[in-house]
Amino acid sequence: DAEELIELVERALKEGREIILLGVRITSEEAGKWFIEWIRRFL
């Protein structure tokens, strides 16, 4: 579910982890915020 995915992304970014989803590397909080917004819009 989308909320679970958002929580995972937020937690990983807070822990300083690198996330790779759909071939996109997300390493900064700014990118994470963009990704979370995208999830909310399309899922």
Results as ranks from 00 to 15, higher is better:
5 L>S: 01
43 L>I: 10
20 I>E: 11
18 E>Q: 10
29 E>I: 13
21 L>R: 00
1 D>E: 12
26 I>D: 01
32 G>M: 09
4 E>M: 14
36 I>V: 07
23 G>W: 14
25 R>A: 13
8 L>M: 12
24 V>W: 13
8 L>T: 04
2 A>S: 06
19 I>N: 02
23 G>S: 07
8 L>I: 12
8 L>D: 01
14 K>T: 07
21 L>W: 03
27 T>M: 09
24 V>S: 00
21 L>D: 00
10 E>A: 06
4 E>Y: 15
7 E>W: 13
43 L>Y: 14
19 I>P: 00
41 R>Y: 11
31 A>H: 13
36 I>L: 06
30 E>V: 09
40 R>D: 08
40 R>C: 15
3 E>L: 14
11 R>S: 10
15 E>S: 05
18 E>F: 09
29 E>M: 13
33 K>G: 05
8 L>N: 01
26 I>S: 02
15 E>Y: 07
17 R>P: 04
24 V>E: 02
3 E>H: 13
26 I>M: 04
10 E>Q: 13
42 F>R: 06
29 E>H: 10
42 F>M: 11
34 W>K: 15
16 G>H: 08
25 R>Y: 12
6 I>E: 03
36 I>A: 03
20 I>K: 01
41 R>P: 03
18 E>T: 12
12 A>C: 03
4 E>V: 14
8 L>H: 03
33 K>N: 08
39 I>S: 02
3 E>F: 14
25 R>V: 13
26 I>Y: 05
17 R>N: 06
41 R>I: 15
15 E>M: 08
3 E>Q: 14
33 K>H: 11
39 I>A: 01
4 E>L: 13
6 I>L: 05
20 I>W: 06
26 I>C: 14
40 R>H: 08
9 V>C: 10
36 I>Q: 02
26 I>T: 06
11 R>N: 12
4 E>H: 15
10 E>V: 11
38 W>T: 03
19 I>Q: 02
29 E>V: 12
5 L>D: 00
6 I>S: 05
5 L>G: 00
25 R>G: 08
7 E>I: 10
36 I>E: 02
7 E>M: 12
13 L>S: 02
6 I>K: 04
24 V>P: 00
14 K>P: 02
23 G>Y: 13
39 I>F: 06
42 F>D: 01
15 E>V: 05
12 A>K: 02
36 I>F: 04
6 I>C: 10
31 A>Q: 15
22 L>Q: 02
4 E>T: 13
30 E>Y: 08
2 A>W: 15
20 I>M: 07
14 K>D: 07
5 L>T: 02
1 D>T: 15
4 E>Q: 14
11 R>D: 07
6 I>Y: 05
41 R>A: 12
7 E>N: 13
24 V>L: 06
22 L>E: 01
16 G>E: 03
13 L>G: 01
29 E>L: 12
40 R>N: 05
43 L>W: 13
42 F>Y: 12
11 R>W: 10
26 I>Q: 02
17 R>F: 04
37 E>V: 10
39 I>K: 00
11 R>E: 09
13 L>P: 01
26 I>V: 04
28 S>I: 06
41 R>Q: 14
36 I>M: 05
10 E>K: 13
22 L>F: 08
38 W>A: 05
13 L>Q: 01
26 I>F: 05
43 L>C: 14
42 F>V: 11
29 E>Q: 13
23 G>M: 10
41 R>V: 15
24 V>Y: 12
11 R>T: 12
34 W>S: 13
35 F>A: 03
1 D>K: 15
17 R>K: 11
41 R>H: 12
1 D>F: 14
16 G>L: 06
14 K>G: 09
17 R>H: 07
4 E>R: 15
37 E>R: 04
4 E>A: 14
4 E>P: 05
31 A>Y: 07
16 G>Q: 06
29 E>D: 08
13 L>E: 03
37 E>D: 11
30 E>K: 10
34 W>D: 12
25 R>F: 12
40 R>I: 11
17 R>A: 09
28 S>W: 07
9 V>H: 00
36 I>K: 03
41 R>M: 15
42 F>K: 07
5 L>N: 00
4 E>S: 12
19 I>E: 00
38 W>F: 09
40 R>Y: 08
18 E>V: 09
18 E>G: 04
38 W>C: 14
14 K>W: 09
12 A>G: 03
22 L>Y: 07
15 E>R: 03
14 K>Y: 07
13 L>W: 10
43 L>T: 06
8 L>F: 10
25 R>P: 08
38 W>Y: 06
10 E>P: 00
38 W>D: 00
14 K>M: 10
40 R>W: 09
26 I>H: 03
28 S>Y: 06
31 A>K: 13
20 I>A: 02
8 L>A: 06
2 A>Q: 08
25 R>W: 11
13 L>D: 01
32 G>E: 04
26 I>G: 01
29 E>T: 11
19 I>F: 05
36 I>Y: 05
8 L>R: 06
8 L>G: 01
18 E>Y: 08
10 E>C: 14
3 E>Y: 15
25 R>H: 14
37 E>C: 01
27 T>P: 02
24 V>G: 02
25 R>M: 09
19 I>M: 03
29 E>S: 07
35 F>E: 01
37 E>T: 07
26 I>E: 08
10 E>I: 15
15 E>D: 12
1 D>Y: 15
26 I>P: 06
28 S>C: 09
32 G>A: 13
30 E>A: 14
16 G>F: 09
3 E>D: 13
21 L>I: 13
36 I>G: 02
5 L>A: 02
41 R>S: 15
12 A>W: 09
29 E>N: 11
19 I>W: 04
30 E>G: 09
25 R>N: 10
39 I>Q: 01
17 R>L: 09
23 G>L: 12
33 K>C: 09
3 E>A: 14
5 L>C: 02
10 E>F: 10
14 K>E: 11
39 I>E: 01
1 D>L: 15
20 I>G: 00
17 R>Y: 09
11 R>I: 11
18 E>D: 06
10 E>W: 14
29 E>Y: 14
30 E>I: 07
6 I>F: 05
24 V>R: 01
16 G>N: 10
5 L>W: 10
35 F>Q: 01
9 V>L: 07
30 E>T: 08
33 K>F: 09
33 K>T: 06
37 E>F: 08
16 G>P: 03
19 I>G: 01
2 A>N: 06
1 D>P: 13
36 I>N: 02
15 E>G: 03
25 R>K: 12
38 W>L: 07
9 V>W: 02
15 E>Q: 07
32 G>R: 04
2 A>F: 15
7 E>R: 15
27 T>D: 15
38 W>V: 04
41 R>F: 13
38 W>N: 06
3 E>C: 15
17 R>C: 11
10 E>M: 11
37 E>Q: 08
2 A>L: 15
22 L>T: 01
39 I>Y: 07
15 E>T: 05
35 F>M: 07
22 L>N: 05
27 T>S: 11
25 R>T: 12
5 L>M: 08
3 E>G: 09
35 F>D: 01
24 V>H: 10
5 L>F: 09
34 W>Q: 14
38 W>I: 04
36 I>T: 03
11 R>K: 13
30 E>M: 10
27 T>G: 12
32 G>F: 10
22 L>D: 00
40 R>T: 09
27 T>I: 09
43 L>N: 05
40 R>A: 10
13 L>C: 15
5 L>Y: 09
1 D>N: 15
42 F>A: 08
35 F>P: 00
2 A>D: 03
32 G>H: 04
15 E>W: 08
37 E>P: 00
34 W>H: 12
24 V>M: 04
9 V>E: 00
42 F>P: 00
26 I>K: 02
4 E>G: 13
19 I>V: 05
3 E>T: 11
7 E>G: 12
23 G>A: 07
24 V>N: 03
24 V>I: 14
32 G>D: 03
38 W>G: 01
9 V>K: 00
18 E>H: 11
41 R>T: 14
40 R>Q: 10
18 E>R: 07
37 E>N: 08
34 W>T: 11
27 T>E: 12
35 F>I: 10
16 G>A: 11
34 W>M: 12
34 W>A: 15
30 E>P: 07
3 E>K: 12
22 L>W: 15
42 F>L: 11
23 G>I: 08
20 I>D: 02
42 F>S: 05
27 T>W: 12
31 A>I: 15
16 G>Y: 04
19 I>C: 06
6 I>T: 03
28 S>K: 01
31 A>M: 14
28 S>T: 12
41 R>E: 13
43 L>V: 09
23 G>E: 05
3 E>V: 13
33 K>V: 13
43 L>F: 15
6 I>G: 04
7 E>L: 12
14 K>H: 08
42 F>Q: 10
40 R>E: 07
32 G>K: 05
9 V>M: 06
7 E>Y: 11
22 L>M: 09
11 R>L: 11
41 R>G: 13
33 K>S: 05
38 W>E: 02
34 W>E: 12
37 E>G: 05
33 K>M: 09
2 A>E: 07
28 S>Q: 02
31 A>V: 15
23 G>C: 07
30 E>N: 06
4 E>K: 15
43 L>A: 07
